[in-house]
Amino acid sequence: MSKRRQQTYEFADELPTGKPDDTHWVVYTRKKRDGPARWAGYLDAVDVELAMQYAREHYGLDEACTGILIHPHDALHDCEYGIDPIEGGDATGDDGESWIVFTQRRRGMIHIEAGVVRAPDADTALARARAIHADGRITNIRVVRTADCTEVHPDDVPLWRDHDMTYKFARGYSKGVRSKWSNFRSDEDLERYRRGDIKEHF
């Protein structure tokens, strides 16, 4: 630890001031190129360019990821979270702007892209999305204007690894750990221990 780092800093004017937060963004990732966008997390950023940069760094490297979709948190419109699964309605029509629809199977689970509807406003989009996607097996529908979403694919920017990154996955250690454990434990004990890993922890 250098002496410079051991300095104690006084923060009279420099402390965070409690100003309003930056724009909140919601991040979704695609595991497969043609697969749905799945909720991945959130981030704060001042603009879309920085938000996408953060999203690529933070969410684009963690697991299989062939696309990232982001939108400002303010742009989402949720219907009320149901206790019971919600049933479909009878709204029809395909006029207006394009809206991306996300559905949630159960409370506590993530939102997953379900399709697109066209509607002139958010309420109508929710009603039309409900008519199409509420099949008695989902508890929430979310719509976001397509124009408010920004998405990148690996064709546009590098999203995923171009070198061996097994060092950052649990499975990247499985073989080595197993072989090293075999110096300390019998095969039977090792198998029991490994099953415990999967059943109880991972």
Binding site: A170, G172, F202
Partner: peptide
């Protein structure tokens, strides 16, 4: 919190396995 925890746990598994190694 539950959704965030599920995602975090996936990464914690790598941290633990790396430590075990």
């Amino acid at each position: 919190y539950v959704r965030t925890m599920n995602r975090i746990n996936m990464e914690e598994a790598f941290h633990f396995k790396s430590g075990e190694d």
